[in-house]
C-alpha cells in the first residue's frame, strides 16, 4: 500500500514536467513582446519604449529556439521565481500565497457540511430505494447539479442580497476590511473567520460568515449530486451483503442494521470520491468566486486565463497539480485505516 502511495508521489515531477511543457507550448504561440512579461520582476521593467523592449527581448533570448527558452524558463521556476503576474500586479508566488487562505476557507466551510449532507441523503435514498424518499432526494440533487453555477449564484445574489440584504458579495464589509488591515489586527492565517476569532473580534467574525454564506450554499448545492449518488449506490451494494442479512436474521432491528452495520461500510467509496471532489473544489471554485466577487485563487485564475497571463496560469496549474497529488495520497493513506482488508492485498 505504502509502496503504491510512494509511486503516486513519484508521479508528481512527471506530471509537473508535462504540465509545464504544455503551458509553455501554449505560451510560445504569443509574440516575444507579450512573453516578455513572464520575465519581468516588476511593472517598471516594461516601461521604456520600443527600443528598450527590443533590447530586453534580445537580452532574455526570447527569439531563441524552443528548448533553450524552455530550459531557462524552467530554471527560473526551480529557483522559486514564478514570474510577474500582470493580472495581480505582483509576483505570482506572492499572489498565490496571499489568495490561498481565502479559497481554503471557502472550500472547507463548504466541503464538510456538503459531505455530511451527501452521506445522509445518499444512505436515505439507498434505504428507501424506488420509494418517494428516493425519488425526492434524486430529484433534489439532480436539480442542483443541472444548475449552471452562475445562474444559481445570480439567483442567490438576487434573493439574499438584493431582496433580503442578508448575504452581500465580497469577502468583508468596508468597516471590517478596515479593521482587518489595521495594525492592531494580527494576521495569523489569512483566513478571516479564524483570524477574527484568534483576535477576539466577534463582529468581524460574523461579518465574514455573512459574506461566506452565499458562496458556501452555492458550492454545497451544485456539488451535492455526485457524492449522494455514490453513497446511494454503495449503500445498495452493502445492503445486499450476507452479513446484513445475518444481522437481520439474528433479530436486530432494521434501523440498527441499516445505520450501524451497513452505512459504515458503505462509506468507503465515498472517501475516494470525496477526495476527488475536494481537489476539484480547490481548483474549481472559479465561477463561484467570480460571481460573488470573492477574491480567492479561482477568481484570480479566471482573470489570468482571460488575460492570457501565462506566469499566473502556470503558477495556478502547478498549485492544482500539487493539490491533486497530495489529496490522492491522503485518500490512499486513509483507506487502509477504514478498511482493514486493503492492507492484506
Amino acid at each position: 500500500m505504502l509502496n503504491y502511495a510512494f509511486r503516486r508521489l513519484l508521479m508528481l515531477p512527471v506530471v509537473m514536467f508535462a504540465l509545464s511543457l504544455m503551458i509553455f507550448g501554449l505560451q510560445m504561440s504569443l509574440t516575444p513582446t507579450q512573453r516578455l512579461a513572464a520575465y519581468a520582476p516588476s511593472p517598471d521593467f516594461l516601461k521604456g519604449g520600443q527600443d528598450s523592449i527590443r533590447r530586453l527581448i534580445e537580452q532574455y533570448g526570447l527569439n531563441d529556439p524552443f528548448y533553450l527558452q524552455y530550459g531557462r524558463w524552467i530554471g527560473n521556476i526551480l529557483t522559486g521565481n514564478l514570474g510577474w503576474s500582470e493580472t495581480a500586479r505582483q509576483p505570482v508566488g506572492t499572489a498565490l500565497t496571499s489568495l490561498l487562505p481565502a479559497t481554503l476557507e471557502l472550500v472547507f466551510i463548504a466541503f464538510v457540511p456538503g459531505l455530511l449532507l451527501a452521506i445522509y441523503l445518499g444512505s436515505r435514498a439507498g434505504i428507501y430505494l424506488n420509494r418517494w424518499q428516493d425519488h425526492l432526494i434524486r430529484f433534489f440533487t439532480i436539480f442542483g447539479w443541472s444548475f449552471p453555477v452562475y445562474v444559481f449564484g445570480l439567483l442567490m445574489l438576487l434573493i439574499f442580497y438584493s431582496v433580503l440584504d442578508w448575504f452581500p458579495p465580497g469577502r468583508l464589509s468596508q468597516w471590517a476590511q478596515a479593521v482587518v488591515t489595521s495594525r492592531d489586527f494580527v494576521r495569523y492565517t489569512g483566513a478571516n473567520t479564524i483570524d477574527s476569532l484568534l483576535n477576539g473580534n466577534l463582529p468581524v467574525f460574523f461579518d465574514s460568515l455573512r459574506h461566506l454564506a452565499a458562496p458556501v450554499i452555492t458550492l454545497i448545492y451544485v456539488n451535492l449530486a455526485n457524492m449522494t449518488r455514490v453513497m446511494r449506490t454503495s449503500m445498495l451494494e452493502t445492503l445486499r451483503q450476507d452479513y446484513v442479512r445475518t444481522a437481520r436474521a439474528k433479530g436486530l432491528r432494521r434501523r440498527v442494521v441499516e445505520l450501524k452495520h451497513a452505512r459504515r461500510n458503505a462509506l468507503l467509496p465515498v472517501v475516494t470520491i470525496a477526495g476527488m471532489e475536494l481537489a476539484y473544489m480547490m481548483g474549481g471554485v472559479v465561477i463561484t468566486e467570480t460571481i460573488f466577487d470573492y477574491s480567492g485563487l479561482g477568481q484570480f485564475a479566471a482573470k489570468s486565463a482571460a488575460n492570457l497571463d501565462f506566469p499566473a496560469i502556470l503558477g495556478f496549474g502547478l498549485y492544482f497539480a500539487v493539490v491533486l497529488v497530495v489529496l490522492n495520497l491522503v485518500v490512499d493513506l486513509i483507506y487502509p485505516l477504514l478498511d482493514p482488508r486493503v492492507k492484506t492485498r
Binding site: V15, L19, V286, A301, A302, A305, I313, F316, G317, F320
Partner: peptide, 13 residues
C-alpha cells in the same frame, strides 16, 4: 497529466 489540469481554466486559456 491531462487529468491533473484544472479543466475550466485550461479550456479558458
Amino acid at each position: 497529466v491531462f487529468m491533473a489540469v484544472p479543466f475550466l481554466i485550461a479550456a479558458m486559456v
